[in-house]
Amino acid sequence: MSASVKAAVPILPAVDVATSLAWWTDVCGFTESFRDNTPPNYVGISRDGASIHIASITDKTVGKAVGEQTMVRIVVDDVTLFFEEYKQRGGKVHPNGGLARKPWGTLEFAAHDPNGVCVTFLE
């Protein structure tokens, strides 16, 4: 018998945690689960079965560089509906990341969070 993996919780970098938190909650529909301080340096968010943490990187140059090299893929049950919700909340789609069926079979769209993290929502 082997152990099973129950979940994964990515920790995303942010130069400004409050700004990233607002994008994730106001635009992507996640809910704040916890925070360390006000304003926050470390927060947890969730939506349905997914959890994400956002951590402050105090050096703005390093933080932006790390953010722009970070990617996260989030699986949803109806990406077309999620896409419409995202746009209605004011979400901007990556210029090359419109809703499309990819050669590997997923239907997905991509965006950048305020720190430059590439976020792909897919089914």
Rank of each mutant, 00 (worst) to 15 (best):
A14L: 11
G91N: 10
D78Y: 14
I52Y: 03
T61Y: 06
V75W: 06
W24H: 12
S46T: 11
V76C: 07
P95T: 07
F30K: 10
D48R: 05
L99T: 07
Y86K: 05
K64T: 15
F109K: 05
A50L: 02
V15C: 12
A14V: 09
P40N: 05
E108T: 01
G49W: 03
E84F: 13
P114S: 09
L81G: 13
D48F: 02
F34I: 11
D36N: 01
F30T: 03
M1G: 11
A18E: 10
E68F: 14
I11Y: 01
H94I: 08
K87N: 07
I45Q: 03
S46I: 01
A7T: 02
I11W: 01
D59A: 10
A111G: 09
G116E: 01
A111R: 06
S20Y: 02
V117E: 06
R101W: 13
P40G: 00
S46D: 13
W23E: 00
L81Y: 15
K92D: 14
R47N: 02
T120E: 00
N41G: 10
S33Q: 04
E123H: 11
V62G: 03
D59K: 08
P39R: 00
Q88K: 10
A8K: 02
T120Y: 12
A65H: 11
L12R: 03
T70K: 14
V117R: 02
W24E: 12
L122D: 10
G97K: 08
I54E: 05
K102G: 04
Y86D: 10
F82Y: 15
M71D: 14
T70L: 13
V27K: 05
K92Y: 04
P95S: 10
V17H: 00
N37G: 05
T80V: 13
E123S: 11
G29P: 04
F83N: 06
H94R: 02
E108A: 04
R101Q: 09
I52D: 01
K102W: 12
N96G: 06
D59M: 08
R73K: 15
L99W: 00
Q69W: 01
